[in-house]
Amino acid sequence: MLLRTLTSLLSSGARVDTGDGFWLPPQASTYSQGIDWVFYFIYWICVFFFVLIVALMILFVWKYRRTSVTHQAGETVTHHTPLELTWTIIPLILVIAIFWIGLDGYVDMIRPPANAYEVNVVAQRWNWSFEHRNGAQDSQILKVPAGRPVKLVMTSQDVLHALFIPAFRAKQDVVPGRYTTLWFEAKEPGLYQLFCAEYCGTQHSQMGATVAVYPPDEFDEIIAKDARWLDNYTDENLYQAGLRIFARCSSCHSLQEEVRLTGPSFWDVHDDFGKKRLMEGDYEADIDENYIQDSILNPQKDIVATYQGVMPTFQGALKPREVRAMVEFLKRLDEVVDRQGNPIE
């Protein structure tokens, strides 16, 4: 729902293209064409050998079937070194060729052009955070310009993840404690699917995002606006900004009253606001602004009873004003969404 409203930023009617034919997705990055060429080169070699092997197999089974228990095998040699060397050397030459072609295509993929547009990517179970140089930040949508090389500098806050954009043929593990990089150049504006490809636990299959490729001039405008998006809110309506920040919490929290994921529904904290609540470890805590702020910045301090303390800290990840927006948002949740999580206009 949220994703759909975000992507409607793009020209209406955009669909994710799944590509023609049985095999690959559409060729949406500059190097995908070369890769697909290698793919089909190997593919046809495989088809040739497969058909050869199976055809010979069927032919022999038919032609030399055992017709009776006294039927004898024909006289042939038991080995024939030149013949055997032939089917050693021909495959050898072929695989050396394939190796070279593959290496050639790969070198393009690991050398980002010097002028690439950089985006920092932080993976955290089960969410992506895409951070642009000018401060603009998104989580379920990676915005990039068409026709300009883009370099992702990635790290993980917890376990291994992998960023995978099938239409770009791009994939790279995202490792805690180090930086890995990935580059691509999208050819055309459009929408593409992004996946997490390295198993990371419960919601691995939901750790996706959309890649939105904009025309270059439009992109600059949008990113500049994104960086200032909070400025559009005054202190009075800051609470409304929370709905957008919520995208970073939605893998564990819901806005539906009855839906509890890894963490409590946000209605729980909203409804208990101003009251006391029993915490893990048998003590009571006051549910107030400080409690919410601590929950976001120092989540290990109070653990809600029956839940596990797996919430990551957002210290540094959210700016102070964003944290304030979130506190206000939770306090005034009933003014932003209904109990099914639908935005109130």
Partner: peptide, 30 residues
């Protein structure tokens, strides 16, 4: 044994896609 020949041919040949750097990146973990 004949099933093996058929299946192993496919299994072995599709290994080439995974050994080749250009194609393996896309196919890895899929």
């Amino acid at each position: 044994a004949l099933s093996f020949l058929f299946i192993f041919s496919i299994g072995g040949l599709t290994g080439i896609f995974h050994g080749t750097l250009a194609t393996t990146i896309h196919l890895h973990d899929t």
